[in-house]
Simulated scan of single mutants.
Amino acid sequence: MKVFVIIPTHNSESTISGTLNSFIAVKEKCPIEINAIIVDDCSEDRTLEIIDNLSVPFKIIQNKSKGVSSARNSALEYLYEFEDTSDIWITFLDSDDYLSNQFFSNLDEKINTFDYIAFEYKNLQVDDVFDGNRSKEISGVNVVEYPFESAIDKAISNFGNNKINFNSPWGRLLKLDFLVKYKFKFHNNLSYKEDFLFNMEVLNKIPRVGTIDTLGYYHVINPESVVNNFVKDAFNNEKFIQGQLLKLSINKKQEIMARYNGWLGLQYVYVFPKHYKSDTYESRKSRFMQVRSYMQPFRIKDYGGHKKSKEFIFFLLYKINFFKILDIIFSFRR
């Protein structure tokens, strides 16, 4: 049994050392073979120099500045060429996040009856000190079967247990022989929600899904991440994603929920984004009407979130076309 950790990098000199040291700590304690594949997307800083100076050799793939989806795909393509893909698992690690050996040091062969295993993660702020590999020791991990239909529901809604998700690339183990059967890849044309669509396409092929309630991943909330900035292609990306979802085996309720969450995400990264200094009132209004014309009609009963929430207020104001009020509300976020 082997695990390959796929790590995309691009100008990651300020974080890659901590990330790879967490991997090294995991490797030292893991009872099974675990290796890292680093895909560097044309870094122009000291990222590769820092990697070379670490004590553990890494498989490094040079990518051609095509973005994180292409970088992940390069690693997948490398693994898909293996003659024997049995008993091999993959997981993803972002270049500013950390693995926890509390989880990986307890993996064993019993996970091999599953195809897709989600495990717990914890959010950290940029200034938080990572101490995950000094956490208390545990004995063994317990895999609980999780209906793939429920995993699809959770991937779409992103509600429920916030310790495990089904819409990020990290925080899960994926069985290589299941992936290679369908040659799954990330969509290179997407700069927004590409990880959500990847998970949806994997789950649509009915893998045997399991969850493990052990912390295995630390995700750093980066103020420069997509959710905190203007994504100029988000609207077109969302339209593409909605079209791809209709090709999958999702029910009407899931389709409506996916459209609702698509609308909600666009409010934050496209209509009323943070950190967009050259934005104007007229530009926001134009984007608001663009999204509204595409996402209509919504009915009150289509609302998929909690009624006692700010999102429900946004939903009502959006439905009755109160752009001015919404613009004032979101101005406190900018």
Score class of each variant (00 low, 15 high):
Ser55Cys: 00
Ser55Glu: 07
Ser55Trp: 00
Ser55Lys: 04
Val56Met: 03
Val56Gln: 06
Val56Tyr: 10
Pro57Asp: 11
Pro57Cys: 02
Pro57Ile: 01
Phe58His: 00
Lys59Met: 09
Lys59Glu: 13
Lys59Cys: 11
Lys59His: 14
Ile60Arg: 03
Ile60Gln: 01
Ile61Asn: 00
Gln62Met: 02
Gln62Thr: 01
Gln62Lys: 07
Gln62Pro: 00
Asn63Met: 06
Asn63Ser: 15
Asn63Pro: 06
Asn63Asp: 14
Lys64Val: 12
Lys64Leu: 11
Ser65Lys: 14
Ser65Cys: 12
Ser65His: 13
Lys66Phe: 14
Lys66Asn: 14
Lys66Tyr: 14
Lys66Leu: 15
Lys66Glu: 15
Gly67Phe: 01
Gly67Ser: 06
Gly67Val: 06
Val68Gln: 14
Ser69Leu: 06
Ser69Val: 02
Ser69Trp: 07
Ser69Arg: 10
Ser69Lys: 06
Ser70Ile: 07
Ser70Glu: 13
Ala71Leu: 09
Ala71Tyr: 07
Arg72Val: 05
Arg72Asp: 04
Arg72Glu: 04
Asn73Tyr: 02
Asn73Lys: 03
Ser74Thr: 08
Ser74Trp: 09
Ser74Arg: 10
Ala75Gln: 03
Ala75Val: 06
Ala75Thr: 03
Ala75Pro: 06
Leu76Pro: 02
Leu76Met: 13
Glu77Asn: 13
Glu77Met: 12
Glu77Gly: 02
Tyr78Ala: 00
Tyr78Gln: 04
Leu79Cys: 08
Leu79Thr: 06
Leu79Asn: 05
Leu79Gln: 08
Tyr80Gly: 01
Tyr80His: 05
Glu81Tyr: 09
Glu81Met: 14
Glu81Val: 07
Glu81Arg: 15
Glu81Ile: 06
Glu81Thr: 12
Glu83Met: 09
Glu83Asp: 15
Glu83Tyr: 10
Asp84Pro: 05
Asp84Thr: 10
Thr85Gln: 15
Thr85His: 14
Thr85Leu: 13
Ser86Arg: 14
Ser86Ile: 09
Ser86Cys: 12
Ser86Asn: 15
Ser86Trp: 03
Ser86Gln: 12
Ser86Tyr: 10
Asp87Phe: 09
Asp87His: 11
Ile88Gln: 09
Ile88Leu: 09
Ile88Gly: 06
Ile88Asp: 11
Ile88Tyr: 09
Trp89Arg: 11
Trp89Ser: 10
Trp89Lys: 12
Trp89Asp: 11
Ile90Gln: 06
Ile90His: 09
Ile90Ser: 05
Ile90Phe: 07
Thr91Leu: 08
Thr91Met: 14
Thr91Asp: 08
Phe92Arg: 02
Phe92Asp: 08
Phe92His: 15
Leu93Ile: 10
Leu93Ser: 04
Asp94Ile: 02
Asp94Glu: 11
Asp94Arg: 01
Asp94Thr: 01
Asp94His: 05
Asp96Gly: 03
Asp96Phe: 07
Asp97Pro: 14
Asp97Glu: 11
Asp97Trp: 13
Tyr98Leu: 04
Tyr98Gly: 01
Tyr98Asn: 08
Tyr98Phe: 15
Leu99Val: 04
Ser100Glu: 05
Ser100His: 03
Ser100Asn: 10
Asn101Val: 06
Asn101Lys: 15
Asn101Gly: 10
